[in-house]
Design a protein around this nucleic acid. Sequence first.
DNA 1: TTAGGGATAGAC
DNA 2: GTCTATCCCTAA
Length: 178
Amino acid sequence: MEDIFQPAHEDDIHHLLQGPQDEADLDKWLADFIPKDGCKRGPRGARKRQTFPSRGARTRRAFPLQQLCFGTTRDKRCRLRKNNDHWTIKEVTNLVQGVSKHGVGRWTELKRDFFSTSIRTSVHLKDKWRNLLKACGIDFTSTAKGNAQKTMLWPLDKRLIEQITQLAYKHPYPRQKY
DNA sequence: TTAGGGATAGAC
DNA sequence: GTCTATCCCTAA
């Protein structure tokens, strides 16, 4: 199976190992971590979207469409669901910067400042922050379930993880009500 | 608009 | 079947 993280050229490998040379180079460097079209990345290895509903004959879950229309036991109406769109390191970095600037709970402002051209909604930002806290082992609510898989943080810079942890304590989630 | 619970996808 | 990331719904 093709390793989607393996750069195509030796120069790319060198570039990857060297890290970003300067701020202008940061985007290109980060781009090496962005999953290629049709692929996913994560602790359990690259995931490719199915290109054909092989299991779809048995279950609607396997359809590879960007959007699905189906009902659930909870919601009888047809419901649209996008396929999973994993976050890139750059997006996570933007989110961390946004929380650093605005604090938690101000997701619309954060979206406006850092994700104005992104498909991510304020709800996505909130969900991702919640997810990052889980992954950092921070129990943000008394009802937090189980232990998040810490290995999800593997592609993230150590400093970024530290920053997330610090922000989590500086700006506890959910936001304090005044 | 936000918080929180639940549903879903996909690897293991 | 389990587990996690992401998406979606809905109450406040």
